[in-house]
Amino acid sequence: MQTWAVANQKGGVGKTTTTLCLARGLADAGFRVLLVDLDPHASLSHAFGIPVEPPPRGSYELFTDATQMLSRLAHGTPVEGLVICPAQPSLATLERRGATQPGLGLALGRALHAARDTYDYALLDCPPTLGLLMVNALAAADRLIAPTQTDPLALHGLRDMLRTADMVERSRRRPLPRAIIPTLHDKRTRSGQNSLEQLRETYGEQVSPDAIPLDTRLRDASAVATGPKLASRGADAYREALQWLLDPLSLQCEAA
């Protein structure tokens, strides 16, 4: 099983949409896909119609009960081959527990390791803050997928995210390849074009060849999650990004 952590320390960069579109593309291609929602806001879970009340069993239990298995916490979705382990607001309380409860830093990694033969891919939708949940995801991941808007403020957030990835990589003592996906790109603006050029100059082949354009159809996450295969510029761009991610040469570039 390949585990991808979709993360950025800045919010509003299309992180959940990226997680959703990549997972949907993998499932449509015939892979067995597990989504793990680690964001207490649970936007990814809501996209699949999972109710807020009563709180569903999901990713919180992975940190409070070491015997829990992802396959038992996963909920089915309308997409064949795609299941989700939903988030709950109680995830926000784990930061306080992490200071006093040993072993929480490796809880997610243990659960993913136990599920390695059940799924082909696991995609982790991380909260937009550096803390226990994001570090768990990065420590367990085979790859970091970092969506970023093409604007100057977002590029600052990306640098912070990659510094965090470097820190976790040193701690876990194995490579953490990273792929950068430019999102919400408006090619009509000079700022957008300049920021995209700066991304490519700074990070080279770690950046997806095609930027994801602004696309209002992608704002309806529920339609992307549960509806038929979406036909739009943004959806097509995500399919191209997925093909790039699945190309072995791209992984070599990310690890270089």
Rank of each mutant, 00 (worst) to 15 (best):
T183F: 02
P127N: 13
D210W: 03
M161P: 00
R97V: 07
M167Q: 13
A140P: 12
Q198M: 11
G192A: 00
P209E: 13
P152R: 12
S195G: 04
P127C: 05
L124F: 04
V135I: 13
V135S: 09
R190Y: 06
D120C: 03
L176S: 09
D166P: 00
G204H: 07
T183K: 01
H185M: 05
Y203A: 09
L123E: 01
L155R: 15
L108E: 03
L176C: 04
L144S: 01
T164F: 03
A165M: 06
T164N: 07
Q193G: 07
E95R: 13
H156T: 15
Q198L: 12
I180R: 04
T150H: 07
S191K: 01
Q149M: 03
T189R: 10
G98P: 01
M167D: 12
T150N: 02
L133E: 08
L138K: 10
A111N: 15
V168N: 13
A139D: 02
R97H: 15
G103L: 12
A107C: 07
E169P: 07
P127V: 14
L130Q: 14
K187L: 00
E197P: 00
R96I: 06
P128I: 04
S195Q: 11
R172C: 10
N194V: 03
L199I: 05
R96D: 05
L130C: 06
V207D: 13
P209Y: 14
L132K: 11
L112C: 06
G98I: 01
Q198W: 08
P102G: 09
P102A: 10
T129Y: 10
P102K: 08
T202K: 15
L162I: 09
P147F: 02
R170L: 02
S171K: 10
P147C: 02
L144D: 00
R116D: 06
R96V: 09
M167F: 06
R143P: 00
R163D: 08
P175Q: 06
D160G: 08
E95G: 13
P182Y: 00
H113I: 13
R172E: 09
A111M: 15
Y119C: 03
R159M: 12
C126K: 02
R170I: 03
Q206F: 06
A211D: 03
P128K: 01
P128T: 00
A92H: 10
D142M: 03
H113F: 15
I180N: 01
Q193R: 12
S208P: 10
A137L: 13
G204Y: 04
D166C: 03
P175K: 01
A99Q: 08
C126Q: 07
I145F: 04
G103H: 13
E201G: 11
T118Y: 09
R178P: 02
D166W: 04
G98D: 14
T150D: 08
L176K: 06
L196F: 08
P147W: 08
A140I: 12
D186V: 03
S208T: 15
D151W: 04
L108Q: 07
V207H: 13
R173E: 14
T129F: 14
A92W: 10
M167A: 13
A146H: 01
R97N: 14
A92I: 10
L124K: 14
D160H: 10
L138E: 12
G105M: 08
T164S: 06
A137D: 10
K187V: 00
D160Q: 15
P128W: 04
R143N: 05
S171I: 10
T183S: 02
T150I: 07
